[in-house]
Amino acid sequence: MTNQRPDSSGAPRDWAEHVVSCLDGRDDTDWTLHESVRGTHNLAAETNERRARAVHAAAMGLGPAGRAAAAGVSEAMLSRWCAQNPLFDAALMSAAAMAAAEEVAEPGRLSGMSLGLLLQTVVRGTGVTAAAAAVNLRYDQLRRLRERNPDVDRLIRAAVTRARARRMPKARKPAFTYRVIRDGEPTQAAAKAPHRAVPPSASTG
């Protein structure tokens, strides 16, 4: 593995930034692979993949907000999918029931999947508190977790920094304009060229 945890000789901040960068590019990678297989974008296939992510989130004990975040859609869109597709709705309910029976989501704790989802949500511009709520964490629970686990704290800080960098306006290049040049009008380059005198012999010859 290349995303090894930092040790005393490493650079923890660089490690955290690298992990968050990989998470930030995961969606682009997934959809690139999707189009590579199909040769073009297919909305129905993309929807199926997003629904599968929602089912995965439900199986990890996440509620509607976490399932929607995992699918990359709004909760309203997730609700419409459930209303339109009873099989999908039943799959979500079955996954949630399995998570509850297996006690997958321990109160006040994160899984690797839910931590990754929290970080991705923050990078997309959601506040840390709201992102934590999507993965079943209250603010005080997240605060205690960050205090106990420096790695988690570094990762969240890196995600916040990346989100801020995304929001910073990029410097705009000056617009390139064209000027119509009429026939016989000297160009700018010609106007700046030094004038050369023609020898009399050349003009009379």
Rank of each mutant, 00 (worst) to 15 (best):
S8W: 15
A68P: 00
R5N: 09
T47N: 05
M60C: 10
S94R: 11
A44C: 05
L87I: 12
S79W: 06
A58P: 00
A158E: 06
R67M: 12
L145I: 08
H56M: 14
R162Y: 05
M93S: 14
M77N: 09
W81H: 01
S9F: 15
L110V: 04
A197Q: 14
A70E: 03
H195D: 12
R5H: 13
D14V: 15
N42T: 08
R13T: 10
A70F: 02
R179D: 07
D7I: 11
L23K: 02
G63S: 11
A132N: 03
R166I: 00
Q188S: 14
D24S: 08
E103H: 00
R182A: 01
S111A: 04
L137W: 05
A105S: 00
L118T: 01
R157S: 09
H18W: 10
S74W: 04
A69K: 00
Q4P: 04
A95T: 01
A52S: 11
W15H: 08
A159W: 07
S8E: 15
G112S: 04
D183N: 14
V55C: 02
R50D: 05
A90S: 12
S21G: 15
D28V: 07
A45E: 06
R51V: 01
C82M: 11
A189H: 07
L145C: 03
P64F: 01
R5M: 11
P194M: 06
P199M: 12
W81P: 01
Q84K: 11
A163N: 05
G108V: 04
M113E: 09
G108E: 10
L92W: 07
G125I: 03
P107W: 13
H56I: 13
E102L: 07
A101Y: 02
Y139T: 14
E102R: 11
E49R: 10
W31K: 09
A95F: 03
W81C: 04
L23H: 08
H41G: 13
V73S: 02
H34Y: 02
L92D: 01
S8M: 15
N3C: 10
A175L: 10
G72K: 01
V135H: 04
A11Y: 15
A101S: 11
R166V: 01
N48T: 12
A58M: 01
P169H: 02
M1L: 12
A58S: 02
G66K: 00
A190E: 15
A131M: 11
A95M: 00
T40V: 12
N3L: 15
I156Y: 04
G39L: 04
A71K: 02
A90C: 05
P174D: 04
I181D: 05
V104Y: 00
P12N: 09
P64G: 05
H56Y: 09
N42C: 14
D183Y: 14
S94Q: 13
W81E: 08
G72I: 00
R146F: 01
A189N: 10
S79C: 03
P86C: 08
R157H: 12
A158K: 03
R179T: 12
Q4C: 05
F176T: 12
R144G: 05
A52M: 11
A193Q: 13
L142G: 07
E106C: 03
K173G: 11
V73T: 04
A191Q: 15
A90F: 06
Y139W: 15
R196Q: 13
R67T: 07
E75T: 14
